[in-house]
Simulated scan of single mutants.
Amino acid sequence: MRKIIVICFMWLVVQPTYSIANEWPKIKSDSLLKLFKMMEPFEVLDKIYVGYIDVKDCYYNEEVKPYLLKWLDKEAYFEYLNKDYIKLAFINDRECSISKIKGWLNQHNQGHLIDTVMKTPELFKVYLDSVIDDVTKYKRKSFFQNGGRLPGQAIYFHALLKLPESYEILRRYWKEDGGKINSKYFDAMLAMHDPEAISKYNSYLDSAIKNVDLSPLYDARKKTYNVYVYGSYALELRLKLLRVTHKSWYSLVNYFYCPYNISLLYLPVYEDTCFRFSNNDFVLRIIDSAENMEYEPYEELEKWSMEVVENIKEFEKAAEPCIKQLMEEELYWKKNMPYYKNEENQ
């Protein structure tokens, strides 16, 4: 009965409000706070989809911030996972506990005590605690062997939230991970517009373009579409890559060959935050043409591709108002970043 009451209460407090600007539900910070006061932070994380959280509302709610920052605490995450494991493997499974205690006693040359321990509840508990301690030490060593880990949802959420505290924690993890582009923390650094991460990624793409290495370019194409996560950098990246004319694969329904820069221009209306709503006739003509690129011969697509490169300034003009607007919208979090003053002084 208590479980039903808790579930019903969760449904009430997490009832999302709907944003007119974004056609998905939003969980407000006050609703999150109620959940955090009922459950452990990682239990809350396991029960919701972070993409529905109103990150701007959370940014300004000082009371909910400590709970959200717990999602970046590797020690707390280990304790949460280990607690669940111990409960499942030992507390709720007496047969497993008996087997593990017998194994522990034999391993420590105390097999002669098995019958006594099994018959004495106090001793059973003492030795079970010893087994649990040993298991916890082993699991801790394994968990932190390569620097520990965090749930992907936690990293993604904080990449959206963009608190300066989140940034400093994730940047430390990224540097501890070697400051690599393939680090699980790297995309969060890009989303938070870390200058070093952006510089590394741009250089990485320059090398990929020079060496006609398409795999990194396919990944970059996804980032150019994701303004929600990467903000103004997504559009800056798209402009950079509009100069790339390499022959590449693309898929709408079927796979077909297409110049890379033309593939960047095919976007549904609800995803295009930039070019489709410009007043630039040239840009609109290319965008309209790109809608039918699947049915055009490659030679025709090549002509469009070269037109884009030759008229790149037109795309830059079309993108300028969108980038400017995004930069203004980003200012509320960016001005609090430790790197912001350095950028202002440059």
Rank of each mutant, 00 (worst) to 15 (best):
Y185D: 12
E176N: 15
Y266H: 13
P268L: 09
R172D: 14
I286S: 08
E236H: 09
N292T: 08
Y225C: 10
S166F: 08
N292A: 13
Y250H: 14
S232N: 01
Y257K: 11
N261P: 12
Y218T: 02
K162C: 13
L160W: 02
I286M: 13
N280P: 03
Y230N: 07
Y255V: 04
C274D: 00
L150W: 00
V227H: 05
R221D: 09
R285I: 03
L150I: 02
A220R: 04
E236A: 03
L239W: 07
Y295T: 11
S203E: 14
E271K: 14
L264T: 07
S183C: 08
A191N: 06
Y228N: 08
L242Q: 07
N182I: 05
L235Q: 08
D213Q: 10
V212R: 14
D194H: 05
R238C: 04
P195M: 05
H158V: 11
R171G: 00
F186S: 04
P268M: 08
E168G: 00
E168T: 14
R285L: 08
D213Y: 09
A197H: 04
N254I: 13
L252K: 13
Y204P: 10
N279G: 15
V269Q: 14
E271Q: 15
Y255R: 12
L150P: 03
L241E: 05
L267T: 05
Q153I: 08
A220V: 11
V229P: 00
E294M: 10
L170T: 11
S289P: 02
T224G: 02
L237G: 03
R243G: 14
T245A: 07
L242M: 15
E236P: 10
N226K: 06
F282S: 11
N226G: 00
V212C: 06
S203F: 05
R171Q: 13
V269D: 15
Y228W: 06
E196I: 08
I181N: 03
N279F: 03
W174P: 10
T224C: 14
K180R: 15
I181D: 04
H246K: 01
A188E: 12
D194K: 04
A188R: 01
R276Y: 11
S215W: 02
S166I: 11
N279L: 09
F282L: 15
V229L: 15
K240N: 10
D288P: 01
I209Y: 04
E165N: 01
D281V: 13
F275H: 10
F256P: 13
L242P: 11
L241R: 03
D288L: 04
K200N: 13
H158C: 06
G178L: 02
R171S: 04
T245L: 00
Y233E: 08
E271V: 01
H193K: 14
T245Q: 14
C258P: 12
N292F: 04
E168H: 04
P195R: 03
Y230H: 10
S278L: 01
S278I: 02
L217Q: 06
Y225N: 07
L242W: 01
P268D: 12
D288C: 05
T224R: 02
A191Y: 01
T273Y: 15
D281P: 07
S207V: 05
I287H: 11
E296Q: 15
L265G: 07
L264V: 09
Y225F: 04
N280V: 05
S215L: 07
D187C: 03
V212W: 07
N280S: 12
Y218F: 15
F157H: 06
D194P: 08
I155D: 10
T245W: 00
Y230R: 01
L267R: 15
T245G: 01
A290L: 00
